[in-house]
Nucleic acid binder design. Structure first.
Lengths: 122, 122
DNA sequence: CTAAAACCTGACGTTGACGTCAGAGGCAAG
DNA sequence: CTTGCCTCTGACGTCAACGTCAGGTTTTAG
């Protein structure tokens, strides 16, 4: 498939895909005419990249971890990096949950106050 | 307290505090000499700001939500914003958890493979 | 064959949350 | 008083993940 189709399948921009290639996150089969060609497996790969990005990983981190994330093979050094990122994500989750709970408390308080007939503040 | 002390107490840079003021997130008592003066409550406030930033909120979102987050008073309009942000955070948490689980799977697989005596790749 | 649509490279623009630097003023200690 | 540290304003720098535009080539539909 060509870059436009891959982009629309995954829901990402063409520019982003070229950027991923520039960052060595994604390879394309160089067609003779100079147009990029991708296998179907590229869809999964791009989705994985997106997932890691949204988890707060940088391009540099992803490019280091991607091979072993796909193959499952990992050196002890990479295992450290994986654990480190896992820890980061874990910490982020817990602070996010705290924040969510805080917002929840406000929301429910406001809701009960409203249903209790208290006038809407201005 | 002055800006340097507040900064070191919360663990944030002086520049960040001035930036918060610029974004109307934080007020300071204007001393006659032009130096900023903060009450003790500023510590909590800055920590809250940090928490919201780390939850992915922008300055603009924070400045809208901060008053009601602190007072608990909220208009119906703000309630919508709160719920929206809550939803965002919720979604983010679930994708983070997915990613974490994926990393976990790799880590444990690698660990068991190692303990099974399989040679370390590379 | 031709025109539209998709693709290419290269390069500059954008955004948010600060970092950093210059130059000047204020403040407590000795 | 002066030395040294803290603070001020103002302004430019940074960084990542793209957006966008220019100018040209390739593919596809009719």
């Amino acid at each position: 498939m060509r870059i436009g189709e891959l982009a629309s399948r995954v829901g990402v921009s063409v520019r982003a895909l070229r950027y991923y290639e520039e960052q060595d996150l994604l390879a394309s089969v160089g067609s003779p005419s100079g147009q990029r060609q991708y296998p179907d497996s590229a869809v999964d790969r791009v989705q994985l990249i997106q997932q890691l990005y949204s988890a707060g990983l940088s391009s540099r981190a992803i490019v280091e971890l991607l091979p072993c994330v796909e193959t499952g093979d990992v050196t002890p050094e990479l295992l450290d990096r994986l654990s480190a990122e896992r820890g980061r994500i874990d910490a982020q989750v817990s602070t996010l949950v705290k924040t969510r709970d805080r917002l929840d408390a406000i929301i429910t308080t406001a809701a009960t106050a409203r249903s209790a007939g208290r006038p809407c503040p201005r």
